[in-house]
Amino acid sequence: MKQKPLTMTRVALGSLLRKPATVPYPAARKPVYLATRGHIAIEEDKCNLCLICDRRCPTGAIAVDRTGKTWAIDRLRCIQCNHCVDVCPRKCLAMENDYTTPMQMKRSDVVPVPFTPPQPKPKPAAAPAPTSDSPLQAKEERPGERNHEPPDQSSAD
């Protein structure tokens, strides 16, 4: 087969003449796209603590506490699948384009939700029971610990 000389030299010279491909990251950054999946944000005013995101999250990253009235997300568990945004009935969750910054400790982002559930409902105690004690303890995990099932720690003791 025919052989052409200096093919790579041409590529290398071309790269010399082109403007640099590098985005000097900490100084400048590539613009994000509209579709980019970064992190989950909540509009806490709209949330009614319905627990659907908590139940449907494939990694169990979201913890909703109905008694403490908080919505918490563990950024180190969230896989940005957008599933919670899809299933949220009130459309109060949104996928922002910025990624989460690295962290040195494991912690959850806890958002207080100013929602008061209507009191005279027939079964007020049934739903919050499974998660009532878990989220506050899951937040204080140390990095050395295994965190397979944080909700069970209190019940096992």
Partner: peptide, 21 residues
Amino acid sequence: IEETSGGRVIFGAAKVGGCRR
């Protein structure tokens, strides 16, 4: 890929019954 699907390597666009976006 990122502009169309939202992820650089994990597309997250597949869904039973069509596409997610």
